[in-house]
Amino acid sequence: MLTLYGQELGSRMLLGTSRYPSPAILADAVRQAGTEVVTVSLRRETAGGRQGGAFFELIRELGVRVLPNTAGCYTVSEAVLTAKMAREVFGTNWIKLEVIGHHDTLQPDVFGLVEAARILAGEGFEVFPYTTDDLVVAERLVDAGCKVLMPWCAPIGSAMGPQNIAALRSMRAHFPDVPLIVDAGIGRPSHATTVMELGYDAVLLNTAVAGAGNPALMAAAFAKAIDAGRAAFEAGMLEPRDMAVPSTPIIGKAVFS
């Protein structure tokens, strides 16, 4: 069972709600994946500060927990303001914190991220920071009050899959008790399985599902891949060896005669 800020969740797949062909297909994907947490970008969906109306109603009707995010925020103050708006709109202290440092790659501004996390944690938010795989930044985020970390495994939307396995391993080893969610960069189910095998607690996806030819079917595929990776991690995997090792004893076999 995955526990995030005291909430027990059966599914280890978190799903973003942007850029689906239609809200109906989004709803189908959420159902097929059995996901229990969806992220919602407050910013673009609320031009003029209005409350997103019908689309947010559709999100609420999904009956799953909403993790609002501060997508598209470039400064600490923007992110903090957006988080406060999100708390009002969705009635939750959860916030996925994004402070974008680079317009083109959407790489997080880790300095602003730490500062915004400290401010928000101080105001009672339960912060899910979208960060890089940098250990020192991760430590600062934990110091700032984050009880969950969400490192990327590749640039957002790139679909490249894990680019730095060593860094992901190292982060897992350094934070054995902090739930770690890979957020961004996953392109296909095998990528999700790979990071789950490393012992990551969950995966957050959006483009890989929304941009698929059949988003609902892809959501189902990811759900299975994430479960498989988790089960493999819990079961304990063999480490690779340099030499072949037969699975049946060879004593008494013809090879010795």
């Binding site: 673009r44 969906e45 609320t46 031009a47 003029g48 209005r50 997103g52 019908a54 689309f55 598209g72």
Partner: peptide
Amino acid sequence: MIETDDDGPITAR
């Protein structure tokens, strides 16, 4: 394509 019925002026972004 923005999910809102706000018909106010176009944003700078």
